[in-house]
């Protein structure tokens, strides 16, 4: 019983903490959407955040202690860029990158 109470409290607290990070901007900045600073952040922030997520997760996908450091992630990453610039089809780019990464990880060529 104490176990169940702990688990229920745990999930509630984790859910509230996560929701809090997502709702706070809407609670405090709702009246200021026309403010030039908010517009500035809205214009530049998404591209910057996307680039940083891509960089961080690409780095974490690679084996940097290998003979060719990080090549197991960099090659699939470059393939995604190349295929996307060529055909500009998101699913195709993602499928090509993921398939090449899976082959590289499962065969351990690097």
């Amino acid at each position: 019983m104490a176990e169940t109470t702990y688990l229920a409290a745990f999930i509630a607290v984790a859910a509230i903490a996560t929701f809090a990070t997502r709702v706070i901007p809407f609670l405090f900045f709702e009246r200021h959407t026309e403010h030039p600073l908010i517009q500035h952040l809205g214009r530049y922030l998404p591209a910057a955040v996307m680039a940083l997520l891509a960089t961080v997760f690409l780095q974490r996908s690679g084996t940097w202690s290998a003979d060719l450091p990080g090549f197991d992630a960099l090659i699939p990453g470059l393939l995604v860029v190349a295929v996307h610039l060529w055909r500009r089809n998101a699913l195709l780019s993602i499928a090509a990158g993921t398939a090449s990464y899976m082959v590289i990880q499962q065969t351990g060529v690097f």
């Binding site: 680039a51 891509a54 996307h84």
Partner: peptide, 15 residues
């Protein structure tokens, strides 16, 4: 193994 790279690829495409 490795299928989670789809998320990295998605972030690259969206960038």
């Amino acid at each position: 193994t490795g299928i989670e790279f789809a998320l990295v690829a998605l972030f690259i495409v969206l960038t």
